[in-house]
């Protein structure tokens, strides 16, 4: 196990250059280039806020802000899981032909999505300023902590789904269906107390709920994150991360043969 970590550390530059390649290569050749990182989620936010505040008349003050704070972390998680499920198979050429610790691929994929989220937080901060809400600085100290938890959670899930997809390709399709539903059991487009009491347990069981809630508490409600959410988020993230990494380590041995 120690040997594995050493091995991955030795390939840290590969992770770095894969992340760079991912970030730079994705929009290379398109006219707006890196701006798409912003345009894409922004349009999504505009569509949702029009639908939910004009048509459904959701009763949340400054709904666009509430939505955008939840949407950016969700986009990161969604990209990590959906893209993560195909990332090993997308690099089949490399996996079949050269040696490197296989963990490098999901790690660099999730990291590049994470970097994208960091960039998109510029929009979040601008939106906070535009709303006139201002920042709650003591709470802001917890922002890096919750980002780390979300990173671990996303990486853990990406480890698991990327490895399983190599053996079982249907997972790719299953994942996209699951993710489509998952966003609706996460309090992004509604507040958690809208949910009827008997279903609320379902929402809280979802590991993304405490994470999104902590983001809301820090940036929208301008309060200290409640410890029970923080502990829940930290605990599930670590468990999922370790489980995903272990599953990956077991399945990784036969990647080259299965592809």
């Amino acid at each position: 196990m120690i040997q594995r970590l050493k091995d991955i550390y030795a390939y840290r530059d590969m992770i770095g250059s894969l992340v760079r390649r991912e970030l730079r290569g994705r929009y290379k050749g398109s006219v707006l280039g890196f701006l798409w990182t912003y345009i894409n989620p922004l349009c999504q936010v505009v569509v949702y806020s029009v639908v939910f505040s004009v048509i459904f008349r959701v009763n949340i003050e400054k709904f666009y802000l509430y939505l955008i704070i939840g949407m950016m972390p969700w986009t990161f998680f969604n990209t990590s899981v959906q893209g993560g499920s195909t990332c090993i198979r997308a690099q089949a050429d490399m996996v079949k032909k050269i040696y490197f610790p296989r963990e490098v691929i999901p790690v660099s994929y999730v990291t590049s999505a994470f970097v994208n989220m960091l960039f998109s937080f510029i929009i979040v901060f601008l939106a906070v300023l535009a709303s006139g809400f201002g920042f709650y600085w003591r709470g802001m100290l917890f922002l890096p902590v919750i980002m780390l938890f979300e990173y671990l959670l996303a990486l853990g899930v990406a480890f698991a789904v990327s490895a399983v997809t190599v053996y079982f390709r249907d997972l790719e399709q299953i994942i996209s269906v699951v993710m489509m539903a998952w966003i609706y059991i996460t309090p992004i487009m509604y507040a958690i107390d809208y949910v009827p009491e008997q279903y609320r347990i379902l929402i809280v069981m979802n590991p993304m709920t405490p994470i999104v809630e902590v983001y809301h508490q820090i940036l929208y409600y301008r309060m200290m994150p409640t410890p029970n959410y923080l502990i829940l988020a930290g605990g599930t993230s670590c468990v999922v991360f370790v489980a995903g990494a272990l599953l990956f380590a077991v399945l990784e041995r036969n990647f080259a043969e299965e592809m």
Binding site: Y11, D13, M14, S17, R20, G25, F100
Partner: peptide, 17 residues
Amino acid sequence: DMTGRENIYTNASIFGI
């Protein structure tokens, strides 16, 4: 889409350099 120079770095990193 990346230049020869950039690819040298990427490729070298794949060899663990």
